[in-house]
Design a protein around this nucleic acid. Structure first.
Lengths: 213, 213, 213, 213
DNA sequence: GATGAATGAGGGTTCATTCAT
DNA sequence: AATGAATGAACCCTCATTCAT
């Protein structure tokens, strides 16, 4: 959708770059989750990725590049997962499906999301912009769907309330990743079901029942 | 309420300790907000506090102590602010008042809250426990109030939904601090009003109107 | 004479700065002479200076600062040594005295001069400018003295020849420092005497005898 | 003339070695001139030479080998250029012709000479010996010519003065390469003419005029 | 109690060299 | 013969912490 911020590599072989960076990201996420970005050393990242410190630096230029790569790969995943739903025309059902996918995705990639939200502040300015833009895109998606629901009379919200509600939905996703320690008793299915219920009750002009929610 | 984790100081005069630590916290919050805990040096903290690096270490033992002091002072403030409401017997009105105070407090101490949530992961294990306990206390407060509302038939939520809803309310507070960049167009009054509306609609068994919301 | 390029230090005490930097310079010159600037590590410099690597960096900001300090201290010495001669009014005798001092100085500070000429190319741009300016000042001094000799009819040189001759005299000084391995059989007195003789013969319009040359 | 220090290559084809090394030297000189030996990476040398880092190491063993090859190629050029003059029997005229060739050569190969004099200290011990020997040969040439002039009564110098004068002539050549920044206003013809004039005046027992100087 | 110079472990990054393809 | 990915020793520099004054 948008031009990516390219990370320089001194290796030419694109397939290899892809492969090595995937190793790198996998290792880095675990470490960042465990100790945070700052307490993780580049040597540890290299080791976790399965190669030497020298090799690590063949594929990135700075430690911050690793963090960016992590964030970027998350959004790639987000996009490829949401691409499977037809969201051309918004409706409550579409919104709920989108949320299911979104929350399901976060559940699958908890570590990645936690790392991204905890550490993205350590990105260099331009990389941070890029990540924030991705985030805004996500919120805007909810906004669009809610607006279309409002147009159909399925929800009863002013435009400003729609903005806030979109953030609301977005942030609930973060909550699932961040507060697992406090939500140990919940399954993702329960979480999704309850969130959907709150959504319907909280925003619908009139009570609506959805089958298969 | 709970035993505080005491931070060692080689200075004896308690009043002086109080004073120096207040200076320290004020300076540290600004710096942590700006650059994060890890990118802030102890020298910078000392300078911002108005004394020398040597003096800083007369009042703490490690850099992490400063972070703990920051977090702790926030909870002191939270408690003193919430202590002004009578919450003996929960009801929807009390809950809403509590939220008003809570969100108002977060608005007043945005920087502090952002720092606390962003950086608390850098606390040593035991300090982290202490902070999480404070957080749990906060969520439990909402839980208790919601439960009492449920008992009064003011909200229609299962016990499990109450747990989730409490986190929900808590997290919306964090959102106000964290996502100001995205919510620039909202005033805190608008925010509180909308949150209250969502709360009432989303959780109430039947529509209820509250005066002075 | 000119504004110095100030090297930042995080230590306040000026006397201490002076002292530590002197230690640093002494050690660095020996090492740079032996192994060159690039092959010398900052740890070696610190050790040679008699303190730790951390302390070294309390008095400079980069390794290049050390090199600059070395170069700068040489020019300080040059100036203080040449300041003892009265050069108000140039004449052959004054020129010869200046050369004696200049060559004598180089003899005393051989290592320093070799290091300066060999390594100054490694200075950051602005520091290099500063060093080259000092060098130009030195050449200009010879130029002025030669011009005044020409005006007095003591040497028979065109203005352009004077320029070249000044460089000539300057470069002979470098030669004494640089080519000691080839001039082992010469004493500095012999060297000065011969240079003086060449000078007189090479430039004088008519043979002139100087007493006490 | 002398046994060359052979640089090992894992390639057998001598013609290819010659060709690749010529590429290498051309690229290296430019880079060394620009950034110095230490700041130039082997990768950069390979790239400037037009082949890969792997190939570079097929033709040399260490980075220092490249520097040696540069120095060696300069002396090859020096010898082939000076070989065109008949220097069997020295005389002032022959000396002056030799100087013309020598200074002209330096003018043509400024970059190479600067690199050689600036960086040769980075050569390994034995390579440095070899280069210094070449240099000594050059000085000795001037010595021989001056001695023969002295025998013919064309110059009035003691044996020791001849030694110094030879270095003198040699070093003036270096000056032309090194101090171009300061001698921008001079052409090589002017430089040669003036040096010749100084030489004649400075060393001749009596004024001698040379036609076509 | 206050100061700030001293310390050195440790971190990010580079780059000469090797070797499998 | 040519390539370029992999390696890891080594370098410059930072900064939390200490301690003599």
């Amino acid at each position: 959708m948008n031009e990516k911020r390219a990370i320089q590599s001194s290796v030419k072989d694109e397939t290899l770059i892809e492969k090595r960076r995937a190793q790198m990201i996998r290792g880095a996420v675990t470490l960042f989750k465990e100790k945070g970005f700052h307490r993780t050393t580049t040597r540890e990242i290299a080791k976790a990725a399965g190669f030497s410190i020298g090799t690590l630096y063949e594929y990135i230029r700075t430690k911050e590049d690793v963090l960016y790569l992590v964030c970027d790969s998350i959004y790639d995943e987000v996009h490829s997962r949401l691409a499977t739903i037809d969201m051309e025309n918004g409706s409550l059902e579409v919104l709920i499906t989108a949320l299911e996918h979104y929350y399901g995705l976060i559940d699958d990639m908890q570590d990645e999301f936690v790392v991204m939200y905890q550490e993205s502040k350590s990105l260099p300015k331009d990389a941070l912009q890029y990540v924030l833009k991705k985030e805004t895109e996500m919120v805007s998606l909810f906004e669009r769907l809610l607006t279309e629901c409002a147009e159909r009379g399925q929800v009863d919200l002013t435009p400003k309330e729609i903005v806030l509600a979109s953030h609301h939905l977005f942030v609930q996703g973060q909550m699932w990743a961040f507060r697992r320690w406090a939500l140990r008793d919940f399954t993702i299915q329960e979480f999704i079901a309850m969130q959907t219920k709150f959504l319907l009750q909280g925003m619908a002009g009139e009570k609506i029942s959805i089958s298969g929610g």
